[in-house]
């Protein structure tokens, strides 16, 4: 997997680059918009991390130029501008995700994984499986070891999202956005409460845990 990082702050670029390398990416880093545009257009990347405010050429116009020349590589926009309006601008210009600075590196890596998964073609699967846990996407029913688990609609949605990204770390922010469409952090940590409910239903009566807490990052569903 190859990632291009276009970020003018060297230190931030370094963090991102190192974290992505640890996650198994080969990374290229550039510090200005023009150079970034050249690299993005001429090399083959799986993901581009793009800062919104750049010297040379600003992030959003780099993005627009890329999209107008049919470069459809997923782009995660980083910005110091955190308003709803800015987020919408970023997504409208062709961005696939938008992160407000300061962000956590773990969050960035998690989002990159979610983005890559999203851009993969779905195989028209009718069920998702993690170990002995199964959900039927048509009847929206979950079973573990053949035993049906009674889930509320949002619990099902949460589980489905987790299972689609099985083995990946999903952060609380990603879950809020993807499952509840909440683009802000509520004052109380609501995700942990929902997750503990889900755990009660999925893991409590079984010897092995499928839902894991990843400290400082979020959650992951996987068969150990």
């Amino acid at each position: 997997m190859r990632a291009l990082i276009i970020e003018d702050d060297h230190e931030v670029a370094d963090f991102v680059s190192q974290a992505l390398k640890e996650a198994g990416f080969i990374t290229d880093t550039v510090h200005d918009g023009r150079e970034g545009l050249y690299m993005a257009a001429n090399e083959d990347y799986d993901i581009i991390i793009l800062d919104r405010m750049l010297p040379g050429k600003d992030g959003l116009s780099v993005l627009k130029t890329l999209r107008s020349t049919d470069v459809m590589t997923p782009v995660l926009v980083l910005s110091a501008l955190g308003e709803v309006r800015h987020r919408i601008d970023g997504l409208r210009s062709g961005g696939d995700d938008y992160m407000v600075k300061p962000f956590s590196i773990a969050e960035l890596v998690a989002r990159v994984h979610v983005l890559l998964k999203r851009t993969l073609p779905t195989g028209g699967e009718t069920e998702l499986v993690v170990g002995e846990l199964k959900i039927d996407l048509l009847s929206r029913k979950a079973t573990r070891a053949g035993k049906e688990i009674d889930l509320k609609p949002k619990e099902y949605k949460l589980l489905e999202f987790m299972m689609r990204h099985a083995g990946q770390v999903v952060t609380r922010t990603i879950l809020l956005e993807q499952v509840w469409d909440y683009n802000f952090a509520p004052q109380t940590n609501v995700i942990d409460v929902h997750m503990s409910r889900l755990r009660n239903k999925i893991d409590k009566d079984f010897p092995t845990e499928l839902i894991h807490t990843i400290r400082g990052a979020g959650y992951c569903i996987r068969e150990d």
Partner: peptide, 23 residues
């Protein structure tokens, strides 16, 4: 406000990043 946002966000991102590397 915009300046504060921009000037403080980048150093805070670095701080966050450093702490995460320490973890």
């Amino acid at each position: 406000t915009d300046n504060i946002a921009h000037d403080l966000r980048t150093p805070l991102t670095r701080l966050h990043g450093r702490l995460e590397r320490l973890l």
